[in-house]
Design a protein around this nucleic acid. Sequence first.
DNA 1: CTTCAATAACCAATATTTTCATAGTAATAT
DNA 2: ATATTACTATGAAAATATTGGTTATTGAAG
Lengths: 226, 226
Amino acid sequence: MKILVIEDETKVGAFIKRGLEEHHHQVEVYADGIGGQQAALEHDYDLIILDLMLPGINGITLCRNLRALEVGTPILMLTALNATQDIVDGLNAGADDYLAKPFHFSELIARLQALARRKSPFHQDQAILAFADLQLNTNTKMARRGGQDITLTAKEYALLELLLKNTGKVLSRALISEAVWGLEFDTGTNTIDVYVNYLRNKIEKGFSGEKLIHTVVGMGYVMKHK
Amino acid sequence: MKILVIEDETKVGAFIKRGLEEHHHQVEVYADGIGGQQAALEHDYDLIILDLMLPGINGITLCRNLRALEVGTPILMLTALNATQDIVDGLNAGADDYLAKPFHFSELIARLQALARRKSPFHQDQAILAFADLQLNTNTKMARRGGQDITLTAKEYALLELLLKNTGKVLSRALISEAVWGLEFDTGTNTIDVYVNYLRNKIEKGFSGEKLIHTVVGMGYVMKHK
DNA sequence: CTTCAATAACCAATATTTTCATAGTAATAT
DNA sequence: ATATTACTATGAAAATATTGGTTATTGAAG
């Protein structure tokens, strides 16, 4: 399984990572909530192990955020022993289970397996593609930025989906043409440019957030920061 | 919810029963494992709270028995504090969650709600599918809107059921075709469109409520608000 | 076991709506 | 200075809605 661990205490994080890797799991550890949340949104994990006491962002808030963004990945909270109120809050925020620290590793493995068993029948492919504060829901085919829903036409959607699935990668016009329009080559028209413009008008114009679709002159387009 | 409690300590059993009844649940308490197992098999509970330390039959054995007999009801185990091995065994026996005694009642309620939420997708044999002010009775195959009964043909029903089971999700014509008409279906025709039209005439035309079936040009149809 | 009528399923033609692609011009980068 | 990209208006094209008619299916009656 691919597991995301969000834990600020490096010793605990390393301990979990080592133990899980011995059980042949793939583990990524983040020491801060912001980075962890970002990772949870951008990658498709089978499980998230989340410490509730984090610097920067509260674990419960993080949990609620993820659920609000329709991240369905099972979440296992780590709490201090007897922190009853935290446990209640965490479960209500959408966490699936908890484990009080300190814990026996065998119990972590048992709970992890129970969660996997419970969730796997539903493990549907990631519904939300996200980058920065932009989200694209592949079920509703709607985009969302700054809490505002944006409707897209079929071509706009296909183009945005392509960009979001290749964030950071410069996509040539030839590649976009083939992926979105299914054509061999760009026929000498500026159709792609026009659609990039449509998209920019819908997802950038009027929003306070950063610019997301960047032009690389002579090369193509990228979705990235900066 | 209808809850079965299997707990030999009468004081604890009574405490749970009283607390749950205050939260408007229907509770039955059995003090012995044999009787409890019998009850679990004969009635349809929404949740089973099971003490692991029981006279007569072991809680873990009971749990394994129920799962072997394909009783899918969520099971919440009660264990002594720090009985790690029991917890591991219990989860492996098919229990869904555990609670260490003594526990705060608020935690029991929280876990119970989490379990119900988690499990609800399983109980999808709901008799009534509903969205907005539209209902579809899967037993009588009749729809109802604004207090008025609507009869549907077989295809209309299948289509409406599909839409109601996937509210908010855009369903492509290919998907609809496969779900309602089966694999081999002549896609050269507009039959799906025609049936959407039939449905709209029956469940939207003449009703004051909002539009429910929305077309997403180039993508398919959705049942949603707005 | 037929026949008939009623209903359902389907298809195709036409009307309507929405989206798309083009081309022309403006703006920007190299 | 020129190549490249951004923006915009518009007619064409594609997708969808609607309607009328044809073929299946079903169920009751003869």
